[in-house]
Each structure stands twice: as structure tokens, then as C-alpha cells.
């Protein structure tokens, strides 16, 4: 069976800068893949290409059998890829519930049905007590959680999390990791997680892909990546060795 998502030799340039160079990788249904690399390695650019905000200059992106290389974001979402944002993009002047209703309207065009679906997800993510709060008034941790709930409401098969843990306190981070595990276990989604906190991404991922200067420099199980000389030199640093 072909993988859920397959990138072949994806290249994205911004003028003279090559943000992604010949990136090839695959994500299977129900898999959790960690995507790591130093700042400017091209992780967010790759997410933007995957979700239709940018289009690669070369290469091909195939999701669930459909070529999405040049698809617009709304079509990519319709096919079943959802994402969250490094800098949150919640709808600030709408309530928590209304934010999730907007997501649920992708699959239910009647507001009543979408509202019902949104309530389920607020309960699943623990946001139900804050349903009537304006999104602008949430804490960062809750905004990030809300983005996940809103993304889930579009009923994706693959969820891309762009630094869902950054800027959170250790306790909030633990709660977020718990939520990601439940999304994987109970909803059976495939996940691709961009994260800088190694203590989070290593135990969470089944497989880790390392980007550096836009290229994939390593790929494999977390334990193997943690010992990879090239990865330690480019990104992890000496202090991570041997943990």
C-alpha cells in the first residue's frame, strides 16, 4: 500500500535561497513523524508547501493518491490535511466554540450539526469549560490547544503541528504531549510534529526526519537519530550525546 503522504524531490527557492532542496519523505497512515532541524532549516517552508500556502518549484507532493503539488489550501484541507501554526492564528473576536464550529463546517454545512461536532472536540481537548470565552482572551497554551481542536474539526487524516509546544510552561507542555498522544491513539490520525524541544519530540515520534539547510540529512528511529554524528554536529549539540 502506498504511504498516506509522499514527497518526491521537493525543492522550494526564494530568489537565491534554497529553502527546501530535493526533500523526499513519506508518512504512513497513523504514523507519528518528528521533523527537526535548526532555525531556518526549512521546516515551516515544507509545511507551507504541504498545505498549499506555497508551491514547490520542483518535485511532487501526493496525498492519499491525489497530486496536491499545486493545490490551494482549502482543497488540501478538504482532502484531509490539517495544520496548526507556529504563531497562533485563532479567530480572536470569535468564541472558542465558534472557532471550532468554523472548522466543523468543512464537513457539516448546517451550523447545528457543526456545533454538535465542535462540542465533542471541545470535550475531547478539555476546552469545553471555556467554550464562550473570546479566543483573543485565552492563554497561549489554550490558543494552541484551540488551534488543534479547530484543525481536528475539519476531520483530517494527517495533522501537521508546527511547534505546538513552544512557549509553554513544563506543565502545559506535558498536557499538550498528552493531548497529542490521545489524538494518535484514540482518533488514529497520522501526525507530523515540528518541535525544538527534544525531550518532547524524541519520545513522541516513531520516526524522526532531520532537515539542515533545506535538505534531509538523516531519517530514522529517535534512538538512532540521537546517536547520529552529523545530526549532533548540525543541530542537537554535544550535550545531547548519550542521553
Amino acid at each position: 500500500m502506498p504511504p498516506l503522504l509522499e514527497l518526491s524531490a521537493v525543492t522550494k527557492r526564494f530568489g537565491g535561497l534554497v529553502a527546501n532542496k530535493d526533500v523526499s519523505l513519506a508518512i504512513g497512515a497513523g504514523e507519528i513523524v518528528g521533523l527537526i532541524g535548526p532555525n531556518g532549516a526549512g521546516k515551516t517552508t515544507l509545511f507551507n508547501c504541504l498545505t498549499g500556502y506555497l508551491h514547490p518549484d520542483a518535485g511532487r507532493i501526493v496525498f492519499a493518491g491525489a497530486d496536491v503539488t499545486h493545490a490551494r489550501p482549502e482543497r488540501v484541507c478538504g482532502l484531509g490535511i490539517a495544520r496548526t501554526w507556529q504563531l497562533v492564528r485563532t479567530f480572536g473576536r470569535m468564541t472558542v466554540l465558534e472557532n471550532v464550529v468554523c472548522g466543523a463546517l468543512k464537513r457539516h454545512s448546517r451550523v447545528g450539526a457543526a456545533r454538535q461536532r465542535a462540542w465533542h472536540l471541545l470535550e475531547f481537548t478539555g476546552l469545553a469549560p471555556k467554550a464562550d470565552v473570546l479566543a483573543a482572551n485565552l492563554t497561549l497554551a489554550d490558543k494552541k490547544r484551540l488551534e488543534i481542536a479547530r484543525a481536528l474539526a475539519t476531520e483530517p487524516r494527517l495533522l501537521l503541528l508546527d511547534e505546538a509546544m513552544s512557549g509553554l510552561t513544563p506543565a502545559e507542555m506535558a498536557a499538550a504531549v498528552e493531548l497529542v498522544r490521545r489524538i494518535h491513539a484514540e482518533l488514529g490520525l497520522a501526525l507530523c510534529v515540528v518541535e525544538h524541544v527534544m525531550e518532547v519530540v524524541m519520545p513522541l515520534s516513531q520516526r524522526v526526519v532531520v532537515l539542515d539547510y533545506g535538505e534531509v540529512i538523516a531519517e530514522g528511529p529517535p534512538a538512532e537519530i540521537a546517536r547520529n554524528e552529523q545530526v549532533i554536529k548540525a543541530y542537537l549539540g554535544e550535550h545531547y550525546r548519550g542521553r
Binding site: 482549502e74 492564528r89 479567530f91 475539519t154
Partner: peptide, 26 residues
Amino acid sequence: EHSKLGFYFRAIRDDQEGAEGIGIDS
């Protein structure tokens, strides 16, 4: 205002990229 249209309009107003990401053709 209380239909899908009302929700989608306000989503685009609050964050156009965020709206497109949940499948709204802005």
C-alpha cells in the same frame, strides 16, 4: 449571520490564512 456564511466571513476577517487552513476559500 447565523449560517455557515456568517461564520466564514468572520473567520476571514479575524485571520485569513487561518481560515484558508480550515478549508475556507477566502
